[in-house]
Amino acid sequence: TEYKLVVVGAGGVGKSALTIQLIQNHFVDEYDPTIEDSYRKQVVIDGETCLLDILDTAGQEEYSAMRDQYMRTGEGFLCVFAINNTKSFEDIHQYREQIKRVKDSDDVPMVLVGNKCDLAARTVESRQAQDLARSYGIPYIETSAKTRQGVEDAFYTLVREIRQH
């Protein structure tokens, strides 16, 4: 089974770092803004072998026109913010609204991801993020692309959301 996953969120929150940590098991430290990259990885989730087709997208506003296209083809979405960047957390709402509009559905598989949880300088409390996820009816997972904490959990949870859909 193949799953088309799309990673969305503001610029600099760590979308590529999360994806590369999942696929290649290493942490990319330097920031190089993405336009669009796709990665494929075969994994076993709950005993089922599946192929993850992951689209890593641009957070930069100037590429926002490309969003409709990949939102149409994606089956599930990782909505990523950084726990030390309140603005990126506030941006999640717009991504969710755009996904709902493009998919013409209120019920699209999504996982809210709070990345950079290895950093002490948190400005978005776990509780705020949990409340937001609960209001959307989606899971919330904290990750660190640096330490790998929660990385597999985030992507695998999204696959489970798609399966249950």
Rank of each mutant, 00 (worst) to 15 (best):
R96I: 13
L112M: 07
V80Y: 05
D46W: 06
G47R: 06
S38G: 11
A154V: 10
V159I: 14
L158N: 07
T123G: 11
N115I: 10
Y136C: 09
C79A: 08
T143P: 13
I54G: 01
A154Y: 04
K116H: 15
E161K: 12
T34F: 00
K146T: 15
G47A: 04
D56F: 01
E125R: 08
N84H: 11
G9A: 05
L5S: 01
D153E: 08
S16T: 13
K4Y: 05
A120F: 11
V108K: 05
L78E: 02
I45E: 05
P33W: 09
V124Y: 11
L52S: 05
G114V: 11
M110N: 01
Y140V: 11
Y95V: 12
D68A: 06
K103H: 08
E30A: 08
R67M: 14
V159E: 11
F27S: 03
S88W: 06
K41Q: 02
G114H: 09
V111L: 14
A154M: 15
Y39A: 04
Q94H: 05
T157N: 13
I162M: 13
Y95S: 03
Y136G: 10
C50Y: 04
A121I: 12
P109Y: 05
D106V: 10
Q164Y: 14
R40Q: 04
G9R: 01
Y156H: 13
E62Q: 12
E75M: 10
L55Q: 05
V113F: 06
A65F: 01
V124T: 10
E152P: 03
L52R: 03
P109R: 01
A65N: 07
D118H: 12
G114K: 01
V44W: 03
G76S: 02
T34W: 00
V28G: 10
T157G: 02
Q69M: 08
D107R: 09
Y70E: 11
S64A: 01
M66S: 14
K116R: 15
A129L: 10
P109A: 07
H93Q: 12
G11L: 15
Q60N: 15
G11K: 15
L51N: 04
V80D: 01
K41P: 15
M110I: 04
R134F: 07
L132E: 06
D131R: 11
R148E: 14
V7D: 00
G74S: 03
D131I: 10
E152H: 06
G76L: 12
I99R: 03
G137T: 12
A82G: 06
Q60V: 15
I20V: 01
T73F: 06
K100A: 10
I23R: 10
K146N: 15
R163E: 11
K41H: 07
V8R: 05
I99T: 02
F89Y: 08
